[in-house]
């Protein structure tokens, strides 16, 4: 069992896409669809430098949220929705190979990544990637995915203390 409630972890483990929301320099939320990867403690998302504005925004403001909302992108029964808030850091110390530490988690959700990686010469900048590491602070869970009912709220930081 990880730091998040089990129904939320099940979502993170199967979701093919999530919505990462960051806060830009003017204080506005900006949302990006990304694959969430989870090791029981930290949520990882990776971003190519081609689409690196989100990395810059996180460096300016580390507060982020990740929502899992798409019924076709998850494999859980019964369907549910969740949003996780957390503090993010960007690991871009080794853009070329540093992200490969999350490759085993990525491969589970997108097996075709190995084929793309084999063609790295065709897309060299796509595989220069930063890793966004999100440490959850709070989670919201909507049973059956119905947001017209209040969510269950889990205070992750307090739960870990």
């Amino acid at each position: 069992m990880g730091v998040l409630p089990q129904p939320v972890e099940e979502l993170l483990e199967t979701a093919l896409v999530s919505e990462l929301t960051v806060v830009d320099g003017s204080g506005l939320p900006v949302t990006h669809p990304l694959i969430p990867l989870y090791d029981g403690e930290v949520i990882y998302l990776t971003s190519s430098i081609l689409f690196s504005k989100k990395l810059e925004h996180i460096k300016g403001n580390p507060k982020v949220s990740i929502s899992i909302s798409d019924p076709v992108a998850v494999d859980v029964e019964p369907f549910r929705r969740a949003t996780i808030q957390g503090d993010a850091t960007v690991d871009d110390a080794d853009l070329h190979a540093g992200w490969e530490r999350v490759l085993p988690l990525w491969r589970k959700k997108e097996p075709a990544i190995d084929m793309f990686l084999g063609k790295r010469v065709a897309l060299p900048l796509f595989f220069e990637r930063g890793v966004i590491e999100v440490r959850p602070t709070k989670a919201f869970l909507w049973a059956n995915g119905a947001t017209d009912r209040p969510p269950q709220v889990f205070d992750v930081v307090k739960a870990m203390a």
Partner: peptide, 20 residues
């Protein structure tokens, strides 16, 4: 698209996103 996600910044300064 099947649904929308509303994202805003909450009172604690964290972004929060809710599907609907």
């Amino acid at each position: 698209f099947e649904h929308a996600v509303i994202a805003f910044v909450d009172d604690d300064g964290y972004p929060l996103s809710v599907a609907t």
